[in-house]
Nucleic acid binder design. Structure first.
Lengths: 344, 344
DNA sequence: CTGTTAGCGCATTCAA
DNA sequence: TTGAATGCGCTAACAG
């Protein structure tokens, strides 16, 4: 008879059943219970069944913390996102969660928006996970990232690469240059970049592509319109164009939200898009294909990006080495009507 | 000199610093380290400083699992979502995470879509969290929910209430009746409900409101068009209307995705919306205000719903009693042009 | 194939 | 104000 040094656990008592109460009920040792639950070692099918029955009757759920403590890892990855508005973050989250789940890791999510003390929150997160992915640079102070980096594997998604911190992102500069060139090809001459290049590394790269397209034509790019990436800012930009304060026959917007808000406002005021002014965006959100004309934009492999981050984290936790070079996923131009093409 | 029975931890060694290495470096016992870190008990300011310095130098991050094991709870809530497409789930997640964070709980997310063994995944989740919120009923088999319910606090969001399992949701039936009545008020007589009432409890209620509006007018509601809630299905519905197979002068759609896809298709084929046929949706997604005419729809307090779920979970973990009655949050009609109103 | 035992890192009671 | 000792529930040698 195996010894069970713990007081017999109350099945429904506070804290629920433990491995001891299961062992007791099944008439085996806790080691055996652990074995059948972990699928490790070999246990006779008869014993296995007894244990499984006991687990079932007691409705036993192992305490993750105890297991984590024993095996010395959490089997969880942390994901730090600045916010969750629009489809971008959600897509990324889907990709991340899916891949993490495939790898047997659960994911703990943290949104920095609205948090007073981000550093504290991240530290708290680090406490519960084996590795952390951070989206963007604005989301987390470099100092925090570095501190973390010393403790657990970290990968930066679509952010400024730092020190030896691994990073993954989607291609921006080249696509932006292509996109801008496409608008030029429609005979436009005075283009404006709408969005703050300093707002995020992604935006900076898109702007640099915008500039590159100008340089390639021997043109001098206008100063970017440094506005936030929100709809409200879009309305304001539209007003400045309508009032004549701003002159342009083409708008290259940092994202679709901005592009849609501007286009919609311009149209409401009687302006012809793309006739009088072309408008293009970035992200290919759902609304982009429902508006008329359809919004020409750039599609990023956001889900894949999330999956890649989860993948890298898992590699690192499994002892893999950090990837030296930032990994870059290709993007895709989506041509619709707002650029001047006759497509829908 | 306090005894430090553990081998002095390598600061940068595998696993990082422990409370022992911090104690050793600060020249105190682990109890003292624990005290200053927890803010419990009283520690002289001099000692406190020594500990804090050591923590800083060692870049010490306590192991969550160890703490959890000791205090016997995880300080984490689980959230089970069927998927993450569209703004609905993201909003819910935002509300949930924000409130949970305010309450000092981290959130572990699980998406059921694509998971082969949901029951297993949920069990795994239950292992790491103190309580679980589940969105909808399709996401999780009732049996799993019930099993969980015996172990940890569970709240169902926008799903079919079960047994004694707590639930929260947004109001549907009444708003749906109002919405339908509004379309009737525009002189429409042959309305169609597009969406599967069996698809989700929410949908069933919306349909029942649709029916109620008919009954109130002594009308016989047509059979609902049982299609999936996706854009693709919308196109198919539009085709059936264009071909004359379906006759209607008003479409009450189960959500905006569906409504937008149908409306867009109808318009491309030359149909006048709302002139020939009114189209209304549900959710008030971003695209709803950018299309022309603007989509008349219903806005739900999704974020608040998520927050409420987190709130309830926390109450329960803190020893509170389950709320007997399902909690229902009010929704709001958003009238734009697609119903026949002259608004934008 | 199964049981015994020694920790995993931390919070916490009890002494001092 | 501080330290020593104990145990949280589980995994993983090691013994048999």
């Amino acid at each position: 008879m195996p010894t069970v040094p713990k007081p017999s656990g109350q099945p429904s008592g506070p804290g629920g059943a433990t491995i001891y109460s299961v062992a007791e009920r099944a008439g085996v040792s806790i080691a055996t219970v652990s074995r059948v639950l972990q699928g490790a070692g070999t246990v006779s099918s008869k014993t296995t069944q007894k244990v499984l029955d006991a687990v079932d009757q007691l409705n036993y759920v192992p305490l993750g913390a105890a297991r984590s403590l024993a095996v010395r890892h959490h089997e969880a990855h942390g994901l730090v996102l600045p916010e969750l508005s629009g489809p971008y973050y959600a897509e990324l989250l889907i990709g991340f969660e899916s891949r993490a789940a495939e790898l047997g890791q659960s994911v703990t999510l943290m949104l920095t928006e609205g948090k007073a003390d981000i550093a504290r929150a991240v530290r708290q997160l680090a406490t519960h996970v084996d590795a952390i992915a951070v989206l963007g640079s604005a989301a987390m102070p470099p100092a925090v990232a570095r501190a973390l980096h010393g403790q657990k594997p970290v990968v930066i998604i679509a952010g400024t690469p730092q020190d030896g911190i691994e990073s993954v992102r989607a291609e921006n500069a080249h696509s932006a240059e292509q996109l801008t060139a496409h608008v030029f090809a429609h005979g436009r001459t005075r283009l404006l970049f709408v969005g703050d290049p300093e707002g995020a590394p992604d935006m900076r790269e898109r702007h640099s592509g915008f500039v590159a397209a100008h340089v390639a034509r021997g043109l001098e790019p206008a100063e970017p319109l440094r506005v936030p990436f929100r709809e409200g800012a879009g309305e304001a930009v539209a007003e400045r164009i309508l009032s004549g304060e701003l002159e342009a026959d083409g708008l290259v917007c940092a994202n679709d939200e901005l592009a849609l808000a501007i286009m919609s406002h311009l149209q409401d005021a009687g302006r012809d898009v793309p006739g009088q002014i072309a408008v293009v965006g970035w992200d290919d959100v759902m609304a982009a294909r429902y508006v008329r004309p359809g919004l020409t934009t750039v599609r990023q492999p956001v889900r894949e990006l999330g999956a890649l981050a989860a993948e890298r984290l898992h590699q690192r936790v499994s002892g893999g080495q950090p990837q030296l070079e930032p990994q870059v996923l290709p993007t895709e131009l989506v041509i619709r009507g707002s650029c001047g093409c006759t497509s829908p």
